[in-house]
Design a protein around this nucleic acid. Structure first.
Lengths: 212, 212, 212, 212
DNA sequence: GATGAATGAGGGTTCATTCAT
DNA sequence: CATGAATGAACCCTCATTCAT
């Protein structure tokens, strides 16, 4: 048989790469459409049009609408966590404030690069949409949980080194994420679509608050 | 004739009161349904069932789905702003921190009392939903704008009295609201449906941050 | 008992007259609304509003929408036939053309006076509406049939006196009515709402056609 | 690539032809349903059932109910006018009566072939239905206007050649159309569904009237 | 008898999903 | 595999009719 011949293998590779490329294009189109039109309003036809393919093709790549959304979240989730983990696996610099600033910079950079995904996260957070999207429902809290975990990790470090007060510490990750998200929404509302998240100011605020 | 007789007048009063009661019941049911099932997912039939009336009745009281949502937002909006204005119209205590704490307590109290509305606000914030709901679209940013305005007012006071740093002050209202909202969502996620917002801790965090 | 006392009788008379007056007002309102808004589009609420009463009152006077429409048709039908019969019961003048002109004048006069009813007749004629309105369905062809009968009567007279050609005579009533109706619609289309049907010209055309 | 290969082109041709066929089937079904059940009573589900497709398919081919009706009217309108214009563009035979007879024969033939459409025209004429159907509203008077125009054209010829009396000539088109329509309705009422319009008799009547 | 709010069956429309080509 | 027309369940909304006051 020539099923394993080099040329066949090469052809399969090519095919598999083409397939991957189409999947990625669909996910990108889905990200844009979900963000722009809303998680509930975006239609499969719109996504297909944005991806430059026919609706049927979406279903060749993803079981259903829910699976597409879940795949999109999963794709970005892993990329974000990778960025964070890459940093968290390094030894601490010794200065908590620098460490935090670096981590939040990485997150902010990712969210700036994937603004659309950041908006989708916001829509998912309410958890109300997940009832309709069971697969995403399993994926989105997981993603939030993992984000939370990373932030808890560094917060615990901060508490241990007495850089942070321990009293309300369990909610610091929530507050930090909430501030990033509300800043993104505010920038959108002000029409500053291309402006970056003011990460340094947010970290400063997180550390020292608003008082003089 | 007897069109103005006491009994007719009484009957009209009764009717009008019954009508108000039904409207209020519908708005309450809508609040619950929109919050629980999601702004897009909640159906008119669900809302009617929750209110214990038939669908047609919803349309006797509100022009369409959009108008019902707008009426709901408007109802709560005015109640919230009233609570805030009642405080803001008083002379300052002189101590900024006390003033802020009091104001946020009022807001938090309102949001605790109307948890479901707080969740709806969150869903409205993305602005993506409003595209579909023109009437709400005109109402919801107004509400956010007015909330913002109140907070800006007190923030400016704080800056003027040098209780607050001026550098990032334009975003303090956004951050404060973002923290309240993310805390609500977190409590929901943890299943602590009936727990109150930890207003004191949030204000403390707002003022002094997380650092020791 | 005083059930038959004069005053009671008088009171009952009064009441019955009031009832009649309300019924007539409703029928008038129905005529206007059906004509203006269309047989299918006119709603019971619109009719009630036009009559200055509540919807419920319509149902106190007429079993349902269909019965109201049927009563309206019946009311005008009997009035029209009365006008025609009054003439037809007289002995012929001896001149067919004069007789026809007089009859058509009476019909045209009635239709001018009840333009709205004339329009309703037009809508009923298609017979498509009657499927939905069983009572009217029984009433409207009857009305058309009776109109037809009167016209057949005079046409037969004309044929017998050799004033009319017999060849196509069975369709002369249809053509005559069709011309009256199309003239009404044309006047409406031209915005000449208040113009009278050009009865003389129509009768002339009926008798001698368009040729020189 | 093979986007322009013969097989793809052939497939697209096939698809496009199938699509046309479905559209035509839907228009035919709509014609039958609108005529039989009435312009207001016919439901989209009935039309879909008559066409042997699902409701959704109607909306794949026509924006909404109104657009379907308008497309139907437009389709028949252009076919009718084509038949008339084909004749009107020829030089006159010199004999007005022959010309008129020929033209009305063509119209009558078309209306016989499209009896259902003839009935729909009748329903549209009242203009009351069109208020609800904006697209049809723009299309239906246009169609009536164009029909009128053609008839005015030939009537003017007749007046110029002194074949017709000029006195009431502006209403001749209206009367002619009204007679055709009332004859169709009469045939329907008599259950003579398949009988043809008696065009010769109508033209004779138009020219010479009913008198001996 | 008049009132008008409540009712709910039924119609128009959308859109995720399927499947023949 | 890609395609896109067909499908039909489910949604929003209307309006004739009822009935408690």
């Amino acid at each position: 048989m020539n099923a394993n011949s080099p040329s066949v293998a090469k052809a399969q590779n090519l095919r598999s790469r083409l397939r991957e490329a189409t999947s990625a294009a669909i996910i990108d189109a889905a990200e844009g459409t979900f963000a722009e039109r809303g998680l509930n309003t975006a239609t499969m036809n719109e996504i297909a049009a944005a991806a430059g393919v026919a609706v049927g093709t979406l279903y060749n790549h993803f079981k259903d609408r829910d699976a597409l959304l879940a795949a999109l979240v999963e794709e970005r989730r892993s990329a974000l966590l990778e960025v964070m983990d890459e940093f968290l696996d390094q030894p601490s610099s010794g200065d908590f404030a620098s460490d935090l600033k670096e981590l939040v910079h990485r997150m902010g950079g990712f969210f700036d690069q994937h603004r659309r995904f950041h908006q989708i996260l916001h829509q998912l957070e309410s958890g109300l949409n997940t009832a309709q999207y069971p697969e995403t429902a399993a994926c989105s809290p997981k993603m939030r949980g993992e984000l939370h975990l990373r932030l808890e990790k560094i917060v615990k470090r901060g508490v241990k080194t007495k850089a942070l007060r321990p009293e309300f510490a369990e909610y610091y990750p929530t507050l930090l994420l909430g501030m990033l998200r509300s800043m993104r929404m505010r920038l959108l509302e002000l029409g500053k679509l291309d402006e970056r998240l003011p990460v340094d100011e947010i970290v400063r605020f997180f550390m020292h608050g608003a008082a003089v």
